[in-house]
Design a binder for these strands. Structure first.
Lengths: 337, 337
DNA sequence: CGGTTACCTGAAACCGGTTACATTGTCGGC
DNA sequence: GCCGACAATGTAACCGGTTTCAGGTAACCG
């Protein structure tokens, strides 16, 4: 484990000069710089990150806040992996690493300050928050503490935070217009949890698009779901039991949509002839389950890259946080409509 | 940002005593300890992780090596999310955090030492490696550098490393015995990439179980796949074109199995009557795609918890690395057999 | 009552970097 | 020939902890 003093000694300069070679190379003469770099490569010198962080208070690490929903043990994010890949790639291009922060199951006190504590303790430069639908006070504490934050699918608002989200309302409208074009007039919806931003926005877009098409919407045709398969299944059963059963359903999440399709099929209905279904997300199963789920696709890697860019902008820029990013959605038509 | 000196000053003791309160509380008198702890809580003192790491050379962070396969942009791990949840939970119970290391797409030189560099630079205590099928030299360099490592589904061998894997051979045998019980005699297989440990082992188990049942295996009935949907599709088409077409196929990965099912269905075959299929993994789609994919289920969270335990054992234990963990597999029977 | 011993605490060196400030040497201009 | 500007480097304080070593006090013992 060679240190900076060792390298300085061997190259006959002071530690300050060596330090400058790595931090402000332009101020050290071409000649000594090259000599030091060569020697560094030869003896395999690596600056110690902790020492550097201690001195500069910058760690080049950002926290990843992604906690499970303790009320829902089996909770899965529909496309966490795609986000993570894109996020990691985009961050590491800027020399940033991702530290996964311990959630509510961590050791130690859980007073709603756990993320703030982690950030302070590790000198994290910022954080990326992946919403899990629980209104976790620890997350809010993070934006309140003015840690540079970018949240995914969670609307946060603070002097050092911004968020990334899909065009949820627009996507819902795409779905509605598609169904209207197919001739549907009685269109219902199974929403996400309305306390979540995507859940709420997709319903807003749905309502607006229906109104825009001059179509009525019965209260019974709006059922709040939970983004889970079973929830979609149950919600669809309630819709099917109605006297004025809809001919089409916009389901605000693919997982639920799959559950809804199964409920419809179990009830002996044919898709799309007896009932059409449009989902949201475009997860892998959507293409695989017969007759194919038409759905509103989200730009999954876009979340990761946009989050990274926004965060880097905050870290380097310094001034106001970037405006929220709204990722466009696209309609993917398959057999269910 | 209160420091240890500040806390020491305010509580009228030396920094050494404060430090001891947090590290070796038993050596400081009950009375002063309590006083310091109270004051610490009151003014919100948090030990600085970087300073601590600098002094102790322990960071309480472990690296997560999980890189994408650059030859396969869309590559997804079949159950990364389950592993991550379990891993994170189990590690944080021991006060350990997970640092996601930048892969081949990182900034800086890529000479096969990138993970070793990252470990040294951040003083990581160890690493968890999730195999991606590429024989990445940077991963091997990590175990060679004797960084405490535990690998998932990758057989590594070193004085400071161990691995976790499913009982791949046993699982394959479960599948074969199940098919034999159903009366099948001509059983083929679509394997994973044979350079991967699961790919190779599942074939070994398959062969052994067939032999154990006294059944022959034609060379043409073994097709090497790639764990991808399209690969499974193509491989199945090759099997279907054979003169002695098998009546059952053991497909060594669910993703491929789904592709295989679609190929069979596209060829007008009925599942399971014309051809039976057993997969491996038990991913979510397996239950959703009609008629339901019978499959060998892996203990997905088990990978994460076992990895955490093995790593903790290495970090605390100090002596020989723990024996490799082999997680039991179970057969899940659905409509495809 | 003197000498151990055990227990608690403090002083100071150290971990490996960064950086404000001081120093040295060169060069151009007058 | 002197002065100021500038470029290159060195000195040393500092970041916030941990830990070795030594010192002081009280209890215990014969």
């Amino acid at each position: 484990m060679t240190t900076i003093r060792e390298l300085a000694r061997r190259s006959g300069v002071s530690v300050a000069t060596v330090s400058r070679v790595f931090n402000t190379p332009e101020v050290v003469s071409q000649h000594t710089r090259q000599r030091i770099l060569d020697l560094a490569a030869e003896i395999g010198y690596l600056p110690n990150g902790s020492a550097r962080t201690l001195a500069t208070k910058k760690s080049n690490m950002v926290g990843l806040v992604w906690d499970t929903d303790h009320r829902r043990p089996g909770w899965r994010h529909p496309f966490l992996q795609e986000i993570l890949v894109a996020l990691k790639t985009a961050l590491s291009a800027h020399g940033l690493n991702l530290l996964m922060l311990a959630g509510h199951d961590a050791a130690g006190p859980d007073d709603g300050q756990r993320y703030v504590r982690a950030v302070r303790q590790h000198n994290l430069d910022g954080a990326v928050i992946i919403d899990n639908g629980t209104r976790d006070p620890a997350v809010l504490a993070l934006v309140e503490a003015q840690v540079p934050c970018v949240a995914l699918d969670l609307r946060v608002d603070g002097p050092a935070s911004t968020y990334i989200t899909s065009d949820n309302a627009g996507g819902a409208a795409l779905a509605v217009r598609h169904l209207v074009e197919r001739g549907h007039r009685r269109i219902a919806t199974i929403t996400g949890p309305l306390r979540t931003w995507p859940g709420a926005e997709r319903l807003v877009g749905f309502r607006a698009a229906l109104a825009g098409a001059g179509l009525p919407l019965a209260d019974s045709h709006v059922i709040e779901g939970d983004f889970y398969l079973d929830g979609g299944h149950a919600a669809m059963n309630r819709l099917l039991a109605l006297d004025d059963r809809p001919t089409a359903v916009f389901v605000a999440g693919d997982e639920m949509a799959v559950g809804a399709m199964r409920a419809a099929q179990a009830a002996g209905l044919r898709i799309p002839d007896d009932i059409a279904i449009v989902g949201f997300d475009d997860i892998e199963v959507a293409a695989l389950i017969p007759p194919g789920l038409s759905t509103v696709a989200q730009n999954k890697p876009g979340f990761g890259t946009a989050a990274a860019e926004a965060l880097v902008a905050m870290l380097h820029g310094g001034d106001d946080p970037p405006k929220p990013t709204v990722l466009p959605t696209t309609l993917v038509v398959r057999g269910s409509t």
